[in-house]
Design a binder for these strands. Structure first.
Lengths: 196, 196
DNA sequence: ACCTGAACACCGTTCAAGT
DNA sequence: ACCTGAACACCGTTCAAGT
């Protein structure tokens, strides 16, 4: 048996993955660097080599969250290449599914920043917005919107879906209500956004 | 001089008001019961008489936040009794102004609940939704919507405005962008929601 | 380059005791 | 009814030292 640390070269990922579990099961208040270290079998000082402080861990979690959410949305929309309305619906549903599985992570991703958001988080958030933009551009090609409007419409759609997600994670509406709300949102969005 | 505690009968309010300042200036991570107690000039155990734990204080803050936000929105909309579109715009702008002044408080109001939200918070959140409903009902009388749709449309408008606020508090968009987004949102909402 | 372990300051919570 | 103050367990952070 070696006495090299079990997680040598891997501790960062182990901490992040365990943190996601804690976030999912017990929420952000239960997330402690010392507990993560204990569960990973390292000393309480070890995370310091990978995250300068608790905020840096939270940033890394938010970054991973944005990347995963963007991937889920892109994947969902890509299953409806022929029908833009259905693609929007699939994307929104994927967003809501993420919110229901990982509400505390979504909170973290959209949490108030005291200063500027970190570069990594900002980039990951832009990846999500880029995914939404790609989906909307497919709608332009299908004749659903004017090309000039796509930037503003993408922002509006993103805000609307995030708002619905916030109502779900804060338990203000139930899952069935959120599904009806997504239907309404997309129907009204397409009607209101149509050129002319 | 009496040695009755300075805050006798008043400590609860003093703690809440100081907590709102801390939340505004330094964010939720800086909010500590012990610090609040020190600043109020009482022992660290004193808050226990008014809030069973830190979560109860946060609930009380969220409750007050919902009440204040609902009042601001009602007031803003009431200044445009003749023009429903302008009333919606005023309400949304009041929401965004709240989000910019008290981003951490808004986060708290829409934070993920692990269990069920407390009765008091739920009631206060419903007051906000009730205010939005009243504004929308005025739109029904003005002929902007079918009465049958007003419940779903109110939910959609609420979600959209909250989503725009989330983009602001998370620093994803700037204040000018949020103003343009509110314009787009309300124009598109009225177009999409119009009866027929 | 990464991890250990002592040290420090701070925190939430509990609770017997006071008024 | 409300507040005090000791006690407990836990936490984030720092840092000299090890490998």
């Amino acid at each position: 048996m070696s006495h090299r640390p079990f997680h040598h070269g891997n501790l960062r990922t182990v901490l992040l993955e365990q943190a996601e579990v804690v976030l999912r099961e017990r929420g952000i208040d239960a997330l402690s660097l010392r507990e993560l270290a204990r569960e990973a079998g390292v000393s309480h000082g070890a995370p310091r080599s990978h995250f300068i402080d608790r905020g840096a861990l939270l940033d890394a979690l938010a970054e991973r969250g944005f990347i995963r959410l963007a991937d889920r949305i892109r994947e969902a929309a890509s299953r409806e290449p022929e029908d833009h309305a259905r693609a929007l619906h699939a994307a929104a549903s994927a967003y809501l599914a993420f919110a229901e599985r990982d509400p505390a992570l979504l909170d973290l991703m959209f949490a108030t920043k005291v200063g500027e958001p970190s570069e990594a988080v900002r980039g990951a958030a832009e990846r999500l917005f880029g995914t939404m933009t790609d989906i909307m551009n497919a709608g332009v090609e299908a004749g659903a919107y004017d090309a000039d409007d796509v930037g503003r419409l993408t922002l509006l759609l993103s805000a609307t879906v995030q708002g619905i997600a916030a109502l779900v994670t804060s338990r203000r509406i139930t899952t069935p209500q959120s599904e009806a709300l997504v239907d309404d949102a997309i129907r009204l969005f397409l009607k209101g956004a149509s050129a002319g």
